[in-house]
């Protein structure tokens, strides 16, 4: 419940932003990325060996939208399947900054989300008598995230620019509590595109 409340608090400012941005852009951008996923500290190693795949779809709103930079709020849904650990379905929002250098850009985001999980490992919950019975595979966790990326924008001066990008994301699965570690770290390497839907 705390997770959902936190998520709503993050999303609430977006309503005002939508109205503001509708005057500036041709429409809402649609961002689609596929990503390779691993349970790891930040590294590129695990992505190349036996990758686990995911997909993310989202849009973004602009607190500030200038030719050289953007202050951004994103809203995304995504899915990943880690073959030996879990399948995740998430809803998250991120606050970020994008800086353009010609057609190229760099960007960074910080976010929070809700992560619904279906665990591959069997689990059991205690009963009142101290025994254990099979538990549901499903659980919901909070999903803090940090990411950074680079991209290239085509059709820069049109109403419908298209971007391609690569982004490295680290997100946490919390609460987690094994050997005192409160967050299980995940990494995702995204490649994707962003395009604008006309009104």
């Amino acid at each position: 419940m705390k997770t959902v409340t936190l998520l709503l608090l993050c999303i609430l400012p977006i309503g005002a932003t939508i109205a503001q941005e509708n005057r500036l852009v041709a429409g809402l951008p649609l961002t689609v990325s596929v990503f390779s996923h691993a349970v790891s500290l930040p590294t590129f190693k695990g992505f190349l060996k036996r990758p686990n795949f995911g997909v993310r779809v989202g849009t973004e709103f602009y607190y500030r939208n200038r030719p050289g930079s953007q202050l951004i709020q994103t809203l995304n849904v995504g899915f990943y399947h880690h073959r030996s650990l879990q399948t995740g379905l998430f809803l998250n929002t991120e606050f970020g900054y994008r800086r353009f250098i010609g057609n190229f850009y760099t960007e960074g985001f910080i976010g929070i989300g809700a992560l619904g999980l279906s665990q591959q490992l069997r689990s059991y919950e205690p009963t009142e008598t101290g025994e254990f019975r099979p538990a549901s595979r499903l659980m919901v966790r909070a999903m803090p995230s940090l990411s950074a990326g680079v991209g290239y924008r085509f059709r820069q001066h049109t109403a419908t620019p298209v971007s391609v990008f690569a982004r490295y994301e680290v997100f946490g699965e919390t609460p987690f509590n094994n050997q005192g570690v409160p967050v299980l770290p995940h990494s995702a390497l995204h490649v994707g595109t962003r395009l604008y839907m006309k009104h």
Partner: peptide
């Protein structure tokens, strides 16, 4: 093992 600190035990034999 209680991976999430909530009393639910996961079979971690693998």
């Amino acid at each position: 093992a209680d991976l999430y600190g909530n009393g639910r035990l996961f079979d971690v034999s693998h």
